[in-house]
């Protein structure tokens, strides 16, 4: 695979996911492009309905039918993994891609002890004997910061608090030394002071093991602290991609810019928060042209007519016509029609 060598660890190209319904085909993802490099933490952010969770599920082949991949490619570690059989995908998940979900209880079987779930997973993916697997399980629990790890192997998930459970899930995800971890809202269900602990553990372990992370969340604070690079999603596409510092402080796309501005911070007190008017279009009701055009303060005729592709912005790449040479020629500067908020 000569082509594969040059690719990043995870490379998603033009990914389309749709849901067939009786009212027609509902496009949920409209061509998602993103990549994760070896050892890098990519934050995927967006508001609910932007398609960030669906992207994660599609990458690891966990889409629930009838939703299905309509187009695009997913490359992992130099091989194409979209369209692989369920068995082949299952081997990749767990062994080479670890998965962490929002609710730790969905990833843990309530009927088995933590120790059994860990050793089983370890032995599925690694060639280890029972004793060695148990030793490894203790090491893992120790690494994720569970006190007295050896004595907790016999405990059931319900005996752990939410934060401890999420630590166990991280241990499970890490147990086969995966190259990539996909974490979907890993801290959303936890209390703020516990969130910080879990982010810390995730960040430390991935750095130590050199594991890349695709961190999907709506919480910009979490992204700001954890990610190296950020992909901002809007209405089923990635609309901006850049380093975390640039996206947070100096976003190129008007949507990301507005989004960052609308988040209250502890540092400063302002009279009114800058707000983006309107709301993200619903799935199936995404307008022609740029999906953000109806809410955009900079909108021009060009935006309404044609959908922009990713292009080099100020400091990041953004899907916005402002950064195209055609912007200067396009008419209709300023003056978007009034749109009701909400």
């Amino acid at each position: 695979m000569a082509d594969g060598a040059a690719r990043p660890l995870l490379d998603v190209r033009g990914l389309k996911v749709g849901l067939p319904t009786r009212r027609g085909h509902l496009p949920i993802l409209n061509g998602v492009d993103l990549h994760v490099k070896e050892g890098e933490v990519l934050g995927v952010v967006g508001e609910s309905g932007a398609g960030k969770s669906i992207t994660g599920l599609a990458v690891i082949g966990l889409l629930e039918p009838p939703a299905r991949i309509d187009g695009g490619e997913v490359w992992f570690d130099g091989a194409r993994i979209d369209g692989l059989s369920g068995d082949a995908l299952r081997r990749i998940r767990g062994a080479r891609i670890g998965v962490i979900f929002q609710d730790p209880l969905t990833s843990l079987n309530p009927l088995y002890t933590i120790g059994r779930q860990l050793t089983e997973t370890i032995r599925t993916h690694m060639d280890l004997g029972a004793d060695a697997a148990e030793k490894r399980a203790v090491e893992l629990l120790d690494e994720v910061g569970i006190p007295a790890a050896a004595s907790r192997l016999g405990a059931y998930p319900h005996e752990f608090s939410g934060g401890m459970r999420q630590r166990v899930v991280i241990a499970l995800a890490l147990c086969a030394h995966p190259r990539l971890i996909i974490a979907d809202e890993p801290t959303t269900a936890l209390d703020v002071s516990i969130q910080a602990q879990i982010i810390g553990v995730l960040k430390r372990l991935c750095r130590e093991h050199g594991t890349a992370v695709m961190l999907i969340t709506h919480d910009m604070g979490v992204i700001a602290e954890t990610a190296d690079r950020v992909a901002v999603m809007y209405a089923g596409r990635v609309i901006e991609d850049g380093t975390v510092a640039e996206v947070v402080r100096n976003a190129s796309h008007p949507y990301s810019h507005g989004l960052m501005g609308s988040i209250p911070t502890i540092g400063e007190r302002v009279g009114r928060l800058p707000q983006i008017r309107g709301a993200m279009p619903r799935v199936g009701a995404v307008p022609e042209g740029c999906a953000f055009a109806p809410r955009c303060p900079e909108v021009r005729d060009l935006c309404r007519a044609e959908r922009p592709v990713m292009m080099g912005g100020k400091t990041t790449s953004a899907a916005c016509w402002q950064y195209s040479p055609r912007w200067a020629d396009s008419a209709g500067a300023a003056g978007a029609e009034a749109v009701a908020d909400g």
Partner: peptide
């Protein structure tokens, strides 16, 4: 993964589908 981690995504898809 010992138990199916599908219920989270299942709810999401269910909501979309409904």
């Amino acid at each position: 993964m010992t138990a199916g981690p599908l219920s989270g995504s299942g709810r999401l898809m269910g909501a979309l589908y409904r």
